[in-house]
Simulated assay, not measured.
Amino acid sequence: MSAEPGTVRPGGRTARVRAAVLRAAGDVLAEHGFAHLDLADVARRAEVGKTTVYRRWGSVTGLVADLLADMAEQSLPREDTGTVLGDLRANARLVQRTLADPRQGALFRAVIAAATCDERTAEALRRFYDIRVAEWAPCVQQGVARGELPPETDAEEVVRAVSAPLYYALLTTGTPPAPAAADRAARAAFAAAAAGVYATT
């Protein structure tokens, strides 16, 4: 059975083609939004044949799904500062820098907007965040083991609580969050977790 378009992980020359196409797709999303993402235009920008793009990704949503998968793969690994608060601050600062980046911030806004009306894009976006949350959840689990947080603390919910206010600020004000907002989000999530807000029992 053939793989679903946009899910193949090729190597060699095809890996270079994939990288060029995904870079071009990200550029279009950042510059013009999801509504203007067109496979033929992406192929032209990537200097790749249209047939190759249509055959491999099949649709705009297939291309976005693969772009998000690639972004998850390329994301920086979590930091280990030795404390929960330090780790959560590092996570918040990473999110803040991403959203404040002119290209990355615009790209995320475009994908989030598309996810509200396209289920495949929404699924791809959920997978992206599942991967990122799973990457950072161990910092909370280690904090529990060190006695910094109550037992049965839901690690994934704590990580989500760090990012949530940063995304909310971006989407509701149109202004990228500042480093101070990242630190505030980390402190708030840590304080809530330490108070048992995210304990499952």
Rank of each mutant, 00 (worst) to 15 (best):
S59A: 06
E31D: 11
A43M: 07
T201R: 13
E31I: 12
Q74S: 14
P102I: 02
R160A: 07
A106T: 00
V197F: 11
C117H: 13
Q74L: 12
P177M: 07
G33R: 12
E157S: 12
F190R: 06
R126V: 10
G174M: 07
R9N: 12
A69N: 11
P165W: 06
T201K: 15
R120Y: 03
L63P: 02
Y167P: 08
D80L: 04
L170T: 02
L39H: 06
Y168R: 13
A65I: 02
D101Q: 03
A106H: 01
C117Q: 11
R132M: 13
A40L: 13
G105W: 09
V95D: 01
R127M: 11
R78A: 14
T200N: 04
T83D: 01
L88C: 00
L107W: 10
P176W: 10
A161Y: 00
A188I: 08
A69S: 15
L166D: 09
H32D: 15
T81W: 08
P179H: 01
S59P: 01
A19L: 06
A199R: 15
V111T: 02
R16H: 14
R18K: 06
R78H: 07
R16S: 03
G11R: 15
A113Q: 08
P5D: 05
R45M: 04
S59F: 06
D27W: 12
A169P: 00
W57Y: 15
E31T: 15
T14Y: 13
D87A: 00
A15G: 05
P138S: 05
T121N: 01
V158N: 02
A20V: 13
F190W: 14
G147F: 08
M71R: 13
A178Q: 10
A185C: 07
E4Y: 02
V64A: 04
V84W: 11
R184H: 05
L107I: 07
T200S: 14
R132A: 09
E156Y: 03
A19C: 05
V133S: 00
